[in-house]
Design a binder for these strands. Structure first.
Lengths: 199, 199
DNA sequence: AGGGCATGTCAACGATTGTTGGCAAACAGA
DNA sequence: TCTGTTTGCCAACAATCGTTGACATGCCCT
């Protein structure tokens, strides 16, 4: 069995390998290219050039381009726990602030959004993240379990819409909004989508 | 001067040409391909095959791929006039309903959103549309002219976010929402973004 | 010290892409 | 009817893509 065929990109999780530095450089370059260029225009050759290695190394370590994308875009939204009545009535503000922190410090989110729009596998990955990470949070806040998926979808539409206009399309007036303004405007929206009674 | 070098795709606007049928087939096929595949994966060869003509015809009539995209994606949101106090206090509902009609009957909008995310020219086109079509509507509804760009950006974030999750990413719970549900949830949001006093 | 495996480079492959120029046929105006 | 233009197809181009296999170098274990 060839130990090096594993695709785990990080040292510390599993047996450390001599090539971990190279693997790290590859996924780092891949993240950047996928974020700025999207899936199709982010070429393996350009990623390899950024990582200062040969393109064939990418193939050896990650199999193919899809494998590289899967390894480079591993997303954990680190959503805070929303149990407790005090947090529940502040859920809108907390979630909006958390999302802003995430998007401004994590280029992987931009990469996933860019790829998800033009790539089927990317779109499915986004669906997974919403189902496994966003939906549980909605479940903690929303009263009626049956309405949770719809409310989570509404929340996602507003939060992803903000990310789309501000970080991907880079629409000037959306970029001009201050953090405080965004929180002040969007927090009540999210709060209402999660907790308001059926309109 | 070669009359056929014009890129006007439709008969009726300008001198009719013998090749107008072909031109129409090309832009129709282009719209569909750009909508489903995005810019990079929509190949000129595939578009030409759909239109039952030779790829070189696309080049002759539209110069290059960018020219074809520009000719295929001409967007008029046909936003209703929002003057009048009665319409102004119903702006949220009217706009949400109008956007749903547009997105469900016009594949060009999906095409532009898909392309705008991965293509610089597409993103700039979206900015133009927002500035020239969405901003004036916000101006009719919003009291303070200085706040119009920010309010239009907020409205765009929610409306584009809905289109993103529902028509592009096709997230199941977002697709499961009925038209009535969407209007009921989003109309107050848009109304507030446009008319509420500074939060 | 030596055998085996991991790491890395190099060159090339087949496929596909946007794009171009030449040539045949159909049409339009005289 | 004749001439020039428009329409269309065909073949090919240069570039680039993801991907592969051969080969050299270095590290690790016994």
């Amino acid at each position: 069995m060839n130990r090096s065929e594993s695709t785990s990109p990080f040292p510390g999780s599993g047996t450390p390998r001599r090539s971990d530095a190279t693997r790290g450089a590859i996924v780092a370059a891949a993240r950047e290219r996928f974020a700025t260029d999207g899936y199709e225009r982010a070429t393996i050759r350009a990623i390899a050039r950024d990582a200062n290695i040969d393109p064939s190394m990418v193939m050896r370590y990650y199999g193919n381009k899809e494998g590289l994308f899967a390894a480079a875009v591993a997303i954990d939204l680190r959503l805070p726990d929303m149990s407790g009545a005090d947090r529940r009535q502040d859920a809108g503000r907390i979630l909006v602030e958390h999302f802003l922190d995430m998007w401004e410090n994590n280029e992987v989110l931009t990469a996933l959004l860019r790829v998800g729009v033009t790539n089927q596998a990317g779109a499915e990955r986004m669906q997974d993240i919403l189902r496994e990470q966003l939906l549980p949070v909605a479940q903690q806040v929303c009263p009626d379990p049956e309405q949770v998926p719809a409310r989570a979808a509404l929340m996602a539409s507003q939060l992803l819409g903000l990310a789309l206009t501000r970080y991907v399309l880079r629409i000037p007036p959306a970029m001009g909004l201050t953090r405080a303004q965004i929180v002040a405007w969007l927090a009540p929206t999210i709060q209402r989508y999660l907790t308001a009674s059926n309109p």
